[in-house]
Nucleic acid binder design. Structure first.
Length: 578
RNA sequence: CGGGAUGUGGCGCAGUUUGGUAGCGCACUUCGCUUGGGACGAAGGGGUCGCACGUUCGAAUCGUGUCAUCCCGACCA
């Protein structure tokens, strides 16, 4: 490809609306352009990158025994009603009507469609197990799209779905996919961590996410990990705490009594007033789960993890109650307390979930739904608790549940996930096969996603410097750029053309910068776009030397044109493992 | 959905307070000159200032409404 003809417009400045490096560089270097909020044009350079990630994904999925198909982007309401998700998916599902007023949606994921395909085509246990996948654009009407390709509304995804006759078969396929994912991300030059996670709205039991670890804001997930193998998304992480039992006796509280605690609306204020540690307080928070109030209890020094709480009460939506909702709840129970004085006492017919940290409290402090008062020296028998669950947000420094060493925390970008769905879709959609006994059985399903466009953006987050992108060879739009310093110099031009032709003939993806630009412009563009290798043909050609520059390391080496060609081919073949 | 901000050529911005008919840098075209880290000179092309209504002799500028975009929060694979 000739640079003079390559469709790319690099910008001198970053776009004003970009926040994270991948967004900034992909726009500045001419890979993408925003069409509307969360929706991007993939320009030729970007499309080459995406196709490479797609193809690596395709090769590894095929190698793992999955079969590619393609499902429609527009889906009918009826299938979503069968699964029950038309009601529960919420506003993220982009709904529309056709000319006959029939309701449709843009596919945010394809469980419903694939399940319908399977029940039509997979009638016998003899056909199972099967894994079907596609690579396609998805649309999710995100509340707040941001970070460019990292959280778009329209994005490219590989989604795979497996059908099995038993949990054992599903486990096997799940492990098979985990290995395929490791291969895919490794080949993309993108180290990932496989972490345990919550299974979220898609539902099911077991799930893992593949995270690209980053220390920037682009990592929207907190990942807790240990030097042993344990690692988990914060929505799923568990830990051991050092303190076994917290007893008020250590602060001289041995007697149960109600104390005046004026203006202690926060844990801090209460601790100061009573001169007790936060860990002695039973914190009580009101949540609204599927529009019903729920009381969550947790030790005062810890935080609630809302996803865990949501799972504990079996809700599909949860949020903290507003001040007005708390007031309404208090009024309905005949109390006059506000935030800070809420307690489980007298909360009849309200679900009360306590974190496991509450179990180990003795002679503790708790609100009793009376303004400016708290109960001290309380015990667990003083009120009703419906269930104890781990609903606690883990903090760094707490101990690994597996080996007991301190946990560390980092940020991660989720580029892939694998779920065990079980019969969540096959049962309600009556998607069954006949077993050996001729009996109808629902498929045991799994689903496996990779954000293709997000993976590309994550690769930029993981590989860049002040000057631009440093694409891993396997997913770079082109492998090499040949830069003649002066297009007016016949010798430089002919050597550059010769190198260009040799590389082309060797199957290397190469660009020659034939523009009549000053060298600074060419070098800046080469660095910005992120060609893994650059061969510069300049004045030293009179001594028979050109320069080979490696983008990743910045290493520059002088050598003859033939040596440069051979070196580059050698490097690229090694990187691509062919 | 709550809070904040912004909409002026492809990109980044000034002009709005004190209404008078649009400007700068980059990019683009042509010529000259230059060629190892975003040169320089000259001459050009491209916008009627998000949209609508209103006030006014006159609106990018004032008013009302509306749409869009971005940030923080809530939410989320």
């Amino acid at each position: 490809m000739r640079m003079s003809k390559l469709f790319v417009q690099t910008l001198r400045e970053f776009p004003a609306d970009a926040e994270v490096v991948s967004h900034k560089f992909l726009v500045k270097a001419g890979f993408i352009r925003k069409l509307t909020s969360g929706v991007y044009n993939y320009l030729p350079l970007m499309w080459r990158v995406l196709k490479k990630i797609e193809n690596i994904t395709r090769e590894e999925m095929d190698k793992a025994g999955a079969q590619e198909l393609l499902m429609p982007f527009v889906q009918p309401k009826e299938l979503w009603e069968e699964s029950g998700r038309w009601e529960v998916y919420g506003k993220e599902l982009m709904r529309l009507k056709d000319r006959h007023n029939r309701e449709m949606c843009l596919g945010p994921t394809h469980e419903e469609i694939i399940t319908a395909i399977a029940r039509d085509g997979l009638k016998s246990y003899k056909q199972l197990p099967v894994n079907l996948y596609q690579i396609q654009s998805k649309f999710r009407d995100e509340v707040r799209p941001r970070f460019g390709l990292l959280r778009g509304r329209e994005f490219i995804m590989k989604d795979a779905y497996s059908f099995a006759t038993s949990q054992e078969e599903l486990d096997k396929e799940y492990d098979n996919m985990a290995q395929a994912y490791k291969n895919i991300f490794n080949r993309c030059g993108l180290p990932t961590k496989m972490v345990q996670s919550d299974s979220g709205a898609i539902g099911g039991s077991v799930s893992h996410e593949f995270m690209v670890i980053t220390d920037t804001d682009a990592g929207e997930n907190d990942v807790f990990y240990c030097e042993c193998d344990y690692s988990a998304n914060s929505n799923h992480a568990v830990s051991k705490l050092p303190e076994a039992v917290v007893d008020g006796a250590s602060c001289g509280i041995t007697e149960k009594k109600v104390l005046d605690t004026p203006q202690t609306h926060s844990i801090e204020a209460l601790c100061e007033f009573l001169n007790v540690p936060a860990s002695l307080i039973c914190k009580c928070l009101v949540y609204i789960a599927d529009s019903k109030p729920v009381l969550a209890l947790i030790r005062g020094d810890k935080q609630i993890e809302e996803t865990k709480l949501m799972n504990a009460v079996g809700a599909i939506e949860i949020r903290i109650a507003t001040a007005e909702e708390i007031e309404e709840l208090m009024n309905s129970k005949g109390f006059n307390a506000a935030k800070g004085f809420i307690g489980p006492k007298g909360m009849d017919d309200i679900t009360i979930v306590a974190d496991e940290t509450i179990k180990a409290l003795k002679n503790f402090v708790v609100g009793i739904n009376e303004e400016d008062k708290h109960l001290v020296g309380a015990s667990l028998e003083d009120f009703r608790i419906d269930k104890y669950e781990d609903i606690r947000l883990v903090e760094a420094g707490e101990f690994c549940p597996v080996c007991g060493k301190p946990l560390k925390v980092t940020k991660g970008i989720e580029v892939g996930n694998i779920f065990q769905l079980g019969t969540k879709y096959s049962k309600p959609m009556n998607a069954v096969y006949l077993d050996q006994n001729g009996k109808a059985q629902p498929y045991i399903m799994g689903c496996y996603g990779i954000g293709i466009s997000r993976t590309a953006a994550a690769a930029v987050e993981a590989h860049y410097d002040d000057w631009g992108i440093k694409w891993p060879v396997a997913i770079a739009p082109y492998h090499v750029i040949v830069v003649p310093v002066s297009t007016n110099d016949n010798q430089q031009m002919s050597v550059a053309e010769d190198i260009y032709n040799q590389l082309n003939n060797a199957g290397i993806e190469v660009v020659i910068d034939d523009r009549n630009e000053r060298p600074g412009v060419k070098f800046k563009d080469a660095d910005l776009i992120g060609f893994p290798y650059r061969i510069t043909v300049g004045k030293t050609i009179v001594d028979g030397k050109v320069e080979l520059v490696t983008r990743e390391s910045g290493e520059k080496v002088e050598m003859t044109p033939d040596e440069a060609v051979n070196k580059v081919i050698e490097y690229i073949k090694a990187a691509l493992l062919f």
